[in-house]
Simulated scan of single mutants.
Amino acid sequence: MPPRRTETRRRSYDQYCPAARALDAVGDRWTLLIVRELLAGPRRYTDLHADLPGVSTDVLASRLKDMERDALVTRRRLPPPAAAYVYELTERGRGLLPVIGALAEWGAPALEERRPTDAVRAHWFAIPLMRALEGLGVDGVVDVRLDEGEFHVRLRGEGGVAAYGDGPAGLTGVADARIEMDADTCLAVSGGALSVAEGVRGGRIQVQGDGALAAALRGE
């Protein structure tokens, strides 16, 4: 359960501009990273705190409260036996997926060298990789295994909206394919410097599966 906080006056740029209005809602530090976490699905407060290293409990609670107020997230109680609350994005909150994707693409060149102080989670690679795989034009679910952990990507074919989740798809369904690679290779694929098929031929990526999605990943 997040700590209570006293209500504060909402800050605003007070500009009649769509960009300014957007920043009124998501411009505070940590807000878009909370969105990034919730794009993977509903999360408990403790899970959010664990995957946002560096955020204080007070700030996290404050941001979530603000995001509820702005209709970006909702909070609901899980049915027994879980007896826990989770936060999840509203439709308006999920609409920030392209924004996060564009920020990830713009920020990718800054990842040339991993700093000793950098935290890392496997699912942080999901959004840029998902955007790179959308061009395959095939429906299906692919499990992605990195040294740092595992996530899954759900592709919707040409023109569809992809989604992703933390951990393997086996928790919520069955994956159609599985790929294994290291983080540097994942970044190369996400940035367009390397296709999955090229990574397979070069021995940097392993693809498992027999269906259309696995074949597309191999470039067959």
Rank of each mutant, 00 (worst) to 15 (best):
D176Y: 11
I205Q: 00
S190I: 02
R218V: 11
D24S: 10
F151G: 06
E37D: 09
E134T: 06
S62W: 04
S195M: 13
E180V: 06
V174I: 11
E134A: 12
G191H: 00
L72P: 11
P42Q: 13
V153F: 03
A212P: 01
M67P: 03
V174A: 11
T117Y: 13
D139K: 10
D166L: 13
W124I: 03
M130Y: 01
T185S: 09
L155Q: 11
V59L: 14
E7Q: 02
G135F: 00
G165H: 09
T57C: 05
G101V: 05
V99F: 07
T8A: 03
R178H: 14
T6D: 09
P109M: 11
Y16L: 15
A82C: 14
H152Y: 09
W106R: 14
E158N: 05
R21W: 12
R156Q: 15
L89K: 01
V86L: 03
E180N: 13
P128Y: 00
D182F: 06
H123Y: 06
G199L: 07
T31M: 09
R9D: 12
G165Q: 13
P3E: 14
Y164F: 15
S190K: 00
V138G: 04
V141G: 01
R11W: 01
A162Q: 01
R76G: 10
E88K: 10
A82S: 14
V144F: 07
D210P: 02
G219L: 01
D118A: 09
W124Y: 12
G199N: 05
D182L: 06
L39S: 11
G54D: 04
D70S: 01
D182Q: 04
E158V: 14
I34N: 00
E105W: 03
G219C: 03
K65Y: 09
